[in-house]
Design a protein around this nucleic acid. Structure first.
Lengths: 329, 329
DNA sequence: TTTTAGCACTGTTTTTGCTTAAGTGCTAAA
DNA sequence: TTTAGCACTTAAGCAAAAACAGTGCTAAAA
């Protein structure tokens, strides 16, 4: 069991450590706790025993453990109002009617990175449930055409397709018309199926070079969904005093360059989720806070990566603000 | 004046330092120079006097100065053949007919970053001289349309345009048709002019909400050229022993995040240019090697950033290979 | 029973001096 | 002109010493 006073003590230690990044000693808390350092030491001892605090060495002040942060996040920290300055900076973006939602997300996370001095990540992925609204195929020259697909949510993808020599331009036209006719209204992720089972058999009958053409289109359409990754403020997390070591910094930067690791940040869960230290797959020394968004057929994850010693309350408030504003669109 | 023997000595020192990143002492060179360390010391002394070598402290071995690297690059290093392994890795990309040139550049620079362990940068910019081949405007819903522009070189740009409420859809259609008619064949950079001086006066006559519509299109088309930046292998340059300091690493990473600094990498000059240390605007401790490319109406810069202690010969050879292959397309 | 003052104790950090290693410049002889 | 030899300089590593921060424990006070 954790007493009221112990909770108060933990709160003070976590918040002091978040602010100053130095182990917190018993003396420093006498004033706030209104008791002597000896009493505080006794309580600290208990909190350490149950695993909420740690010492960096035998005679050091205390530092919250992962479990300590977890307890703080789950039981102590209180949701806050968005602070005035943060609000001001975000509002101009969020309220800008002429921005596409996607741009709002990107821009907001950029700003949040600046405001908090943490790194933010936006993982976007065009929903495969989007329906094809229109397919355009525009000839460029003898060997090249551009295929453009617009979805019902306004998402645009294009691919340059190389047509190997000697394919009859009339046959291209015919194929394109057919594709146009058959593909509109299907979902992005079934495009390649439609190509294979509906388009292919038909063009096989009247197009000489049907194999060549089919392959060109198939490979162009097969991975038409575009996954985007944007990382803002890599430098921010590196400025944190816990990453004051060249090798550690290299390690973090390497992780941001590893596509697999970055894509792993993707969140499945709804709501705003907090992964402290070893709870996340990115790095044991950081906390990842993330949430899924889904809007206009575009879905993805917005995430914030900082030290475990993170300004949890503020960050949650900020992410909540963004999430609410996106969802209400 | 620099004698033949002094040049040979400089060459050995530069190449030894490139390889080992440690100041080079006189003893280590006795074998290659076929003379005693005392003689070498005397020659080193001279090379230092004329500013080609430096000491890190009074009793240390010698390190090339910026001027020394410059002399090496200008007068000593010899162009080489592409080494077998490098060739092999690049060829599969460069010879892939079905890749767009743009993708070849991106992919090649990615590979060069891996091969050399330096950081590479690709600054792409759609040429403003490209001609508009086709404009498509596709309605999404009451307030949103997507405008797509394809150029004669196969470059595609799109923008989501927000149409403020109550604009008549028939009027949108009329405006779009007009834009379509007037804009095809003009160059990307004169699109906004055409909009202002040809489209605007006409729609003003028969479109009620012409101000609103004009503004929407104008702002959408006004910066239609898309500048792209791709940085590969940030971590590589950080791994170099000269950047073994947390603050230095942070400094470099911050520079890669500063759009202005990165855009400054853009090269104006033709040919492959080498900027050693203070010769470049990026960072005094690095060398930037870059070259302009222009192909298919797409133009930009490919650059390679590494320590001053860079494998100049190899890097030049690699960039040359890419450049030649792009130019011959 | 809880709180507190006091003190011994323990790691960290910083300073200091000392030693070793690497490599130079200079001089005098080859 | 080249070389061997030597005195000299700095960096780097290491250990001991001193200063510091903060703890745990005990015995007395509340």
């Amino acid at each position: 069991m954790v007493s009221k006073r112990q909770e108060e003590l933990l709160k003070l230690i976590v918040e002091d450590y978040i602010k100053n990044a130095r182990p917190v000693g018993s003396k420093a808390l006498c004033d706030s706790m209104k008791c002597s350092s000896a009493t505080i030491r006794a309580e600290m001892n208990y909190l350490e025993e149950i695993g909420l605090l740690e010492k960096t060495h035998i005679s050091s002040g205390r530092v919250p453990s992962e479990k300590g942060y977890r307890y703080y996040v789950d039981n102590i920290m209180a949701p806050r109002e968005l602070n005035g300055e943060d609000m001001l900076k975000l509002q101009t973006i969020v309220d800008n009617k002429s921005l596409v939602v996607n741009d709002i997300i990107l821009k907001s996370m950029e700003i949040i990175s600046e405001l908090t001095h943490y790194t933010t990540v936006v993982l976007g992925k065009q929903s495969s449930h989007n329906l094809v609204q229109k397919v355009e195929v525009i000839p460029i020259d003898k060997n090249n055409i551009v295929a453009i697909v617009v979805t019902d949510k306004g998402h645009v993808e294009h691919k340059n397709i190389y047509i190997p020599g000697d394919v009859d331009s009339v046959e291209i036209k015919q194929t394109v018309d057919l594709i146009n006719k058959l593909i509109v209204g299907t979902s992005i992720d079934s495009v390649s199926e439609v190509l294979e089972y509906q388009v292919k058999p038909i063009i096989a009958q009247y197009v000489k070079q049907h194999e060549v053409l089919y392959n060109a289109f198939y490979s162009a359409f097969s991975d038409f969904t575009n996954e985007s990754v944007k990382v803002n403020g890599r430098k921010n997390i590196l400025m944190q005093p816990e990453f004051n070591d060249a090798d550690k910094i290299r390690d973090i930067i390497s992780k941001f360059e590893d596509k697999e690791i970055v894509n792993n940040i993707k969140e499945e869960d709804n709501g705003i989720n907090i992964y402290i230290g070893s709870e996340n797959d990115f790095d044991d020394d950081v906390t990842v806070i993330k949430t899924k968004y889904k809007v206009n057929g575009e879905e993805g994850t917005i995430a914030l990566i900082g030290p475990k010693r993170m300004e949890y309350e503020r960050v949650i408030t900020l992410l909540n603000y963004i999430k609410e504003n996106i969802d209400s669109r």
